[in-house]
């Protein structure tokens, strides 16, 4: 499990972030005191650091620069300072991303995932998700079953991925739309229906019939085979 270190002085925000990241499959840890922040961060050897730039009594930018001297660990700056200059400065000092509070949590997740993938990715990484009945190929954006393979559009792929991640649970149309919107695909209700239909047809071509079930008034559910 990949480890994320949270460096944030607001206790509640820190705890909730920890809970949230743990729920989403990361090993989240956080610093509780900020006396030797730089050393503590380096000691943890986390895979990624979420760094609040306004820590008590310390200059976050200084810490950022110091870490960059010795480590290439991905760093996402979280801050409540919302202006262009601070953002540019942080990026110049070596931050990988800059997110302002209050943040869109899905976007934070997406950024974490991208950064971790890039960091781990010297070719090997989780490029395929094995879903028992079929395999999602992340890099090619395809759906594979046995030796057959079918190409999915960006939207179809995202929808299926979201259903896979919530397999056995109902995912509402709104949730699907929200996640598509977060990825800048601003579709409307009708387009979603069309996308789902096409996705179903493509799955059927591979013999994956009736795997996506409509729950009237609630959303969709990706069933397990044999259910």
């Amino acid at each position: 499990m990949q480890e994320i270190l949270i460096v944030e002085d607001d206790e509640k925000l820190r705890n909730e972030l920890e809970i949230f990241l743990s729920k989403n499959g990361y090993n989240a840890k956080s610093l509780k005191n900020f006396e030797n922040t730089k050393e503590d961060i380096l000691k943890q050897k986390a895979d990624l650091v979420l760094l609040d730039i306004n820590l008590p009594n310390i200059d976050g930018e200084y810490i950022l620069k110091e870490i960059r001297k010795v480590s290439e660990v991905p760093i996402i700056i979280i801050t409540s300072r919302d202006n262009e200059i601070d953002e540019l400065l942080s990026i110049n000092y070596g931050a990988d991303h800059y997110i302002t509070k209050p943040f869109n949590i899905q976007i934070l997740l997406a950024k974490i995932a991208t950064l971790l993938k890039r960091a781990n990715n010297a070719g090997i990484s989780q490029e395929k998700i094995d879903c028992k009945d079929f395999v999602l190929n992340m890099s090619k954006s395809t759906l594979e079953k046995d030796d057959k393979e079918i190409e999915l559009t960006k939207n179809e792929f995202r929808i299926l991925k979201q259903l896979v991640q919530n397999r056995g649970k109902i995912v509402s149309r709104e949730e699907i739309m929200e996640s598509l919107w977060d990825n800048e695909s601003f579709i409307d209700d009708n387009t979603l229906t069309v996308n789902i239909t096409r996705l179903r047809n493509k799955m059927e071509e591979l013999g994956l019939k009736e795997l996506i079930e409509t729950k009237r008034g609630q959303g969709y559910i990706l069933k397990r085979r044999g259910e």
Binding site: D10, K12, L13, E16, L17, I19, F20, K23, N54, S80, R81, T100, K101, P102, F103, I105
Partner: peptide, 18 residues
């Protein structure tokens, strides 16, 4: 003040998310 108030808002949003 705005930077300050954004912190509890961010925390509230995290609580909601969880």
């Amino acid at each position: 003040w705005i930077h300050e108030i954004k912190i509890p808002i961010a925390a509230s949003k995290m609580v909601i998310e969880n």
